[in-house]
Amino acid sequence: MKTLYFDCFSGISGDMVIGALIDAGADPNFLVEELKKLHIENEYELKWKKLVKNGITSSKFDVQLLNNVHSDNHDHNHTHNHDHVHNHDHSHGHHHEHRAYKDIVKLIENAGFAEPVKKTALKIFKRIGEAEGHIHGIPLEQVYFHEVGAVDSIIDIIGAVILIHQLEIDVIKSSPIPVGTGRIHIAHGIYPVPAPATLEILKGVPIDQSEIKAELTTPTGAAIVSVLAEEFCSIPSMKIKSIGYGAGTKTFKNHPNVLRVIIGE
């Protein structure tokens, strides 16, 4: 049994997951090719590099959004009042600020991924969609993604599932999840950490106290780990085969902001 363990001593986010998986030996070029099945590659560019985070060499994964790339011949110089979300026949060229939950489901269902990849990606998005719906008091069908819905979350979630499938992982476990403390600015105003969506997604998951004044775990990271991990525990008994470190965006003074994945038999 091939086991993957998420060691989240500095929390977890989507880009940290992918960085850590690449660092542990997953193939980023395979990821690029697989993600083309979504047919939104004119909206983003993927970058990954090695960097040192407080003394630990880790891989940093980035989704760079390409704005105003037009793949069609329509004149799109007018202002978009989010009408493009409902108007999919000629909206491929925009950077979508908002995508409806049901659009993301369609995107995943039509991509032709391997069945387990499709099923797991849909499950993770559902977890986020239900949390957002619960907080905003709206049914899942009416959920639009703002923070979590832009292209980078789509890439982070589906990308993580693609790489785990590529690594042929049988069992996934995780440490408890530190969420951080303090306040963050999001679209709806100044919110406590963890953000309401993150906390809602982590229902049923053991969280870890942390004194760090920052958002350590994002809704995307929370959803990935809460759906994938079948157990939250200390490092399981196994023979270690590979280890990967995925760098987060923030840097803390006394603490490497990385996610560690440990893969073993």
Rank of each mutant, 00 (worst) to 15 (best):
M1K: 15
D7T: 12
S10V: 05
G19H: 06
G19W: 03
D27T: 09
P28Q: 04
P28L: 07
N29A: 07
N29V: 14
E33L: 10
E34K: 03
K36F: 02
K37F: 02
L38E: 00
L38T: 03
H39D: 12
K49C: 07
N54A: 14
N54F: 01
T57M: 11
V63D: 03
L65P: 04
L66M: 10
L66P: 12
V69K: 00
H70W: 13
H70L: 08
S71Q: 12
D72L: 05
H84D: 12
H84W: 10
H88N: 05
G93F: 05
H95E: 10
H95T: 11
Y101P: 07
V105T: 08
V105E: 07
E109H: 05
E109S: 14
F113K: 01
V117W: 00
K119S: 14
I124A: 00
I124D: 00
K126Y: 03
R127N: 13
G129N: 02
E130N: 14
E130T: 13
A131I: 04
H136Y: 06
H136D: 03
G137V: 08
P139T: 08
E141S: 13
E141V: 14
H146L: 09
G149F: 01
S153T: 05
I155R: 05
I158L: 09
I162W: 01
I164R: 04
I169V: 14
I172N: 07
G182F: 11
G182H: 14
G189S: 09
P192S: 13
A195M: 07
A195H: 14
P196W: 05
L199T: 11
G204A: 02
I207Y: 08
D208I: 05
S210N: 15
I212R: 13
K213S: 14
E215A: 07
T217R: 06
P236A: 10
M238K: 13
K239G: 03
S242A: 11
I243R: 08
G246T: 10
G248E: 04
K253V: 10
V258Y: 00
V258S: 09
R260H: 10
R260D: 03
V261E: 01
G264F: 09
